[in-house]
Design a protein around this nucleic acid. Structure first.
Lengths: 344, 344
DNA sequence: ATGAAAGCGCTAACAC
DNA sequence: GTGTTAGCGCTTTCAT
């Protein structure tokens, strides 16, 4: 009679880290009790809890989140897909998200598309493999495939930065109105030859929407709305270039409406270096309201976008839903604020 | 004879997403073959692979990474612990890391300590629960508990930003020497009353190390090394405040050596607003070399820190080790470069 | 090159 | 309030 093949009940690899069961044995309880101490401490009698906590401490138990996620089919991961990390705006959104999620023990998975819709698709595919608790992605436009996937996704989903027809929820502001608003302000200040200057506007269609708002306002006025566009990432240097090109190709221009503050600041810095007077020689307006613009001389006229608020609210919406609640609204428009400076 | 209670073999929840087994059935192979197609396609005959790939496509299979991580005890997660996301330097490090890791299908888990050593401990504890493939953390100093945990950690570990005695590997630069180098430069330019100004230097002991290098150089010269310190996060406004305070409390000061470029730029912007001449009235030096400083008038004298390189190299070190290689060196000093401007 | 069996460490469901 | 049992969906080991 040969014995049945004995299988080592011990771990396959050199992983000798203690498990829930080890803690349970040490504490003289069952493993589910240890699990409860970790997940819903209030459902365990205090004395039991103390025993278990002592055992955890004693054997140096580290919780295996992977096993927990598999068993419960929920991972406490929340992917956040943004188009860029070079743009401070998204960093601030992420900070808002992180601050809120961290209090509820959710972990962000950061995804950067570099303004590529195709990359968004890959990222979502990957992230779905982690059984995410919820999903956050930037913008309301997606590849058809992504859209289909997101529509099928049955957990909380927030599309951030914009307002409009959301798949599940959205938190953002209207870029069209922001562009319109700034154009209106420039017109009201007496500018008559306003050039719009942006970069990477094919991928960054929020900048495109701002341009459309701008253009529509100028057209109401019977004014042309020339657009100057580049394809490099937004940097100070590009703002300087833009300023030069406007002066060369649009000599009558009396104002430049920049798609973002970085380029606008770059233009002001360039003007300062070369003795160009702003707004007398040419006026400058930006978008987003970075601290730098408010410290320059002249102070930048811009629009403040509520990005940390977007982050915090997006997170709050998700938490509400995860706790079984129904958020007050599924589409939140946080608005924006025109910040008059001295540059226009 | 009552039948034994029948347990639904199907999924507990409404999770009807297809599994490896579903794909296997569809393709007429075993599940392990599907697994191999996903993990080591070369070990599967081409015809089999095509069958499986077709099945995956057909039923819309999404890989469950959580289950895979549990079974293999490796998660493809690499936690990255940084002290701040408000500091662009760390954003750039993260970008360098992400660019490299993404090519190898590793996912960063971002942790932000806000310069709290205690928070670092919590984060590491949490992250270890995800069976991380490797670990990246900022700095060489840790709470005793953290140190013990890290020393026991048996996977690749990189401590970034500094040079010195690493637990496993390190990639960084010498902050002491950077401070020393800038002080030396200022002395050589003829400045004789140099104030060092920094903020949050208790938590950010790299700034502290720069100060020590600065101080030691001045002491060699027989000069005093006054230190002005704040506790708010570094912002332009704080640089302005610092400039004012130096002029008030150190009227003989002819130079300010700032712990970072943000404050230094803030000081220059403030000087520009108030007609103070830099460097004639007072000289300004910074640290890290942000684009802004190089676009200001006067251009900021600063030190360039190799942060994207730190990110890329830290990632490369880890990949090398994960592929079974041995990196050339376990402690990499990427150095720094003094960037003379017009502000000092 | 492919498969069968046995878990990885945890939690859901249901009993007591 | 606590325990028992049966998986979660994948990969490992070992066999063919």
């Amino acid at each position: 009679m040969s014995e049945p093949p004995r299988h080592e009940k011990r771990r396959r690899k050199g992983l000798d880290s203690p498990t829930l069961t080890d803690v349970a044995r040490e504490a003289g309880v069952s493993s589910i009790t240890v699990s409860r101490v970790l997940n819903s401490p209030d459902s365990v009698r205090e004395s039991t809890r103390h025993k278990v906590e002592a055992a955890i401490e004693h054997i140096g138990y580290v919780r295996n989140m992977v096993a927990g996620s598999l068993a419960s089919a929920r991972s406490r991961f929340i992917p956040v897909i943004v188009p860029s990390l070079s743009n401070v705006v998204f960093i601030e959104v992420i900070q808002g998200l992180q601050a809120t999620f961290e209090q509820h023990d959710y972990q962000i998975l950061l995804g950067n598309t570099d303004y590529s819709m195709k990359r968004e698709e890959e990222l979502i595919q990957t992230f779905l493999g982690w059984s995410p608790t919820a999903l956050i992605t930037t913008g309301l436009r997606h590849q058809p495939g992504v859209r289909a996937v997101l529509e099928r996704y049955s957990h909380p989903l927030v599309e951030i930065m914009e307002v409009g027809e959301a798949i599940d929820m959205s938190v953002g502001m209207s870029h069209y109105h922001a562009g319109h608003c700034m154009a209106d302000y420039l017109v009201s200040r007496g500018y008559r030859h306003i050039v719009y200057a942006g970069t990477q506007m094919d991928g960054n269609y929020r900048a495109q929407q701002r341009y459309e708002g701008h253009r529509d306002r100028l057209q109401e006025q019977g004014m042309a709305a020339p657009l100057l566009e580049w394809h490099d990432p937004s940097q100070f240097e590009l703002g300087a270039t833009a300023l030069e090109e406007v002066r060369k190709h649009h000599p009558r221009a009396d104002a430049i409406h920049f798609a973002d503050d970085v380029m606008a600041c770059g233009a002001i810095l360039h003007a300062n270096r070369h003795g160009l007077r702003i707004p007398e020689d040419i006026a400058i307006a930006g978008f987003t309201c970075l601290p730098l613009g408010q410290s320059l001389t002249p102070r930048l006229t811009t629009i403040h976008s509520p990005r940390e608020a977007i982050g915090r609210l997006a997170a709050t919406q998700i938490i509400t839903r995860l706790n079984g609640g129904q958020p007050d609204s599924s589409a939140i428009d946080l608005g924006f604020e025109l910040v008059p400076g001295d540059s226009a």
